[in-house]
């Protein structure tokens, strides 16, 4: 008697178990693939593009992102360093990228 088989007991069909966190950013219609906002991406790209060994100065960041406020740049920098994309070097105003891509 094999009638005891349980076809898919206890297995709910989640299509995307890992996506719950991405839902926090709803309202941003054009998120890049890496999950950063466009502003965060711009900041990250500028820091990535800096060839100096000590990294990019916050002052340079400000000069190149004149459409952003100092507060929003700081916010992006904070976020990026929290995520591990960038880190401060010689002082808290210099940042380098960890991303090798």
């Amino acid at each position: 008697n094999k009638s005891h088989s349980q076809p898919s007991a206890g297995r709910a069909s989640f299509s995307n178990p890992g996506m719950s966190e991405a839902g926090n950013f709803s309202g941003n219609s054009f998120l890049p693939a890496n999950g950063l906002t466009p502003a965060q991406n711009q900041v990250l790209n500028l820091i990535k593009a800096c060839p100096r060994p000590e990294g990019l100065n916050f002052h340079d960041l400000k000069n190149q992102l004149h459409h952003m406020t100092v507060a929003s740049i700081k916010q992006a920098v904070d976020f990026l360093s929290n995520e591990g994309h960038i880190y401060s070097t010689v002082d808290d105003d210099h940042f380098k990228s960890t991303d090798a891509e």
């Binding site: 360093s81 995520e83 591990g84 994309h85 960038i86 880190y87 401060s88 070097t89 010689v90 960890t98």
Partner: peptide
């Protein structure tokens, strides 16, 4: 300079933790 290395190591750890 130790500070820079430490910051970098910490950042890489955070990044790695994110990517798990």
């Amino acid at each position: 300079l130790v500070r820079i290395q430490r910051n970098k190591a910490a950042a890489l750890l955070r990044l790695a933790a994110r990517n798990v």
